[in-house]
């Protein structure tokens, strides 16, 4: 938990389609859409299934397990909020349900991160209003 009055990084600005996802994060649940028709999952959340264009789908709770599909390590500071964080690891994580999402991988030195490394989600309550999903080695 980071103190709200010291948190100076960008916060997510939800769209109508992603509000429920971020609300889920606050409850420490990783919600992803699953299609009622074809059963596929997708991310980021949107109004219809990109595979079969069905508008009938449900939010389901993802297992939170996945693997590092690709990663990079920021050394350059692009935003002052990350000045104390560099070097920090960012990744495309592939969930075991299929969808891929960008996030941070923490709890491991950047030099030890590997493609295909198993990771699992955790939740970082960065302010009273916002919780971020992040990943750590599984």
């Amino acid at each position: 938990m980071t103190e709200a009055n010291t948190y100076n990084k960008p916060l997510p600005v939800p769209s109508p389609e992603t509000e429920a996802f971020w609300e889920g994060c606050k409850r420490h649940e990783l919600l992803i859409p699953r299609c009622d028709k074809c059963g596929s999952h997708w991310f980021p959340p949107s109004i219809l299934c990109p595979e079969c264009l069905s508008t009938e789908w449900q939010w389901v709770k993802a297992s939170g397990k996945g693997k590092v599909f690709a990663f990079g390590v920021y050394h350059r500071v692009y935003h002052q909020g990350f000045k104390e964080e560099v070097p920090y690891t960012v990744a495309v994580v592939e969930l075991e349900e299929g969808p891929r999402m960008v996030s941070n991988v923490t709890g491991i030195p950047p030099t030890d991160v590997k493609v295909d490394m198993p990771v699992e989600v955790y939740f970082d309550d960065v302010t009273p209003e916002a919780t971020l999903y992040k990943f750590k080695p599984a």
Partner: peptide, 17 residues
């Protein structure tokens, strides 16, 4: 969302991935 909050900013990152 799904980027800046994780410090994912600028053009190079997608090619680093």
């Amino acid at each position: 969302e799904f980027g800046p909050e994780f410090g994912i900013l600028g053009a190079p990152v997608d090619y680093a991935f």
